[in-house]
Write a protein that binds this DNA or RNA. Structure first.
Lengths: 186, 186
DNA sequence: GTCTATAGAGGGATAGAC
DNA sequence: GTCTATCCCTCTATAGAC
């Protein structure tokens, strides 16, 4: 009853780990099949090309990202607290290993040529932005900038801080964003 | 008297163009020597390895980045105007072709393993951040957050907006940052 | 200092046996 | 559906002639 993990999932799990930590271009088919302990024929049976494997990887990341956020923020109803928890979630994501946002990484690696990849990444980021716009709309706030502009720029700060964490390998910038938005919402 | 451009510069110019537009890993030595119209022996005479070529590329980008900013903002003395011009500079950089920040791209591609690369990139970003901190310190501003925190988060917004421009292939986010900081400084 | 030729490894993908 | 064997291409880097 061991080895219950199906071949397809083993491939995708190994590919996910390698694409994220080594990069897509630096990960070869041969390494994937070696670490997943399967034959090359099996890989191409499940995924017609390396690009299909990339798309499956991105879809999996997308799903896990929002599932993770939901679990992380469940039980919290106040918009102000949910906004702060949003940063905490991104801080928590960076904790075990600092390799940055997988969506930003893949665009940096392969560009925006591939339309399916481009749309997956753009869609993921827009979904985050919309979620934040919704939270800020519910907020009881009356500051110098309107709520939508604040929401959009808060999103950009978090994006910038995530990139910064990847480069500098610390979460100081993310903590700074939290401090900033706390004062703005006070 | 034609062909005054030295071999070393021809190599570096071609490599710069290809590394930036195609990516480092996706650019082969063979393509570089073909487009620079030189022999492979000449390349390795000037650059001991592809990695040395990468370091030369990054140092060139660093130099040109700050030279470009200086030219772009010369004659402007008011800190408020210089801050706004900082965004305009980054908007202008994105105008001819949308390929994002070369420093962020290279970290996304090769990670932070290589210490020389990591330090070049981190140094470049810190230099930008320090420059902005200086400008905000000179500012006559009395808002809800202190100047240093505002400067750091302004930098993060611009970083986030640059990444966003790379993904979405438009400069809307950068325009949004400008609007935001204008209201904050008003 | 620039050239040609080539080494030696690894890339993605396919064919056909079982 | 999983396996092995293999094709053809490209990669970075080196050797040695000129």
């Amino acid at each position: 009853m061991k080895e219950k993990v199906k071949v397809r999932d083993r491939i995708l799990n190994v590919a996910t780990d390698l694409f994220y930590h080594q990069g897509f271009n630096q990960t070869g088919i041969n390494q994937i099949i070696a670490e997943a302990d399967i034959a090359i024929g099996s890989l191409y049976n499940h995924f017609p090309s390396k690009n299909d494997l990339l798309l499956a990887y991105l879809r999996k990341q997308e799903e896990e990202w929002f599932d993770g956020l939901e679990k992380f923020t469940q039980g919290i109803s106040q918009p102000r607290e949910r906004i702060l928890k949003f940063i905490d979630y991104r801080i928590a994501q960076q904790q075990p290993d600092f390799y940055g946002c997988p969506f930003i990484k893949i665009i940096a690696e392969i560009g925006t040529q591939d339309q399916q990849v481009q749309q997956l990444v753009e869609g993921h980021k827009n979904r985050q932005r919309m979620l934040l716009q919704g939270l800020f709309q519910q907020l009881d706030y009356d500051g110098p900038v309107d709520k939508k502009l604040l929401a959009d720029n808060f999103f950009l700060m978090v994006e910038g801080a995530t990139v910064n964490a990847t480069i500098s390998r610390n979460i100081k910038a993310l903590e700074g964003v939290k401090k900033f938005i706390k004062k703005m919402m006070a």
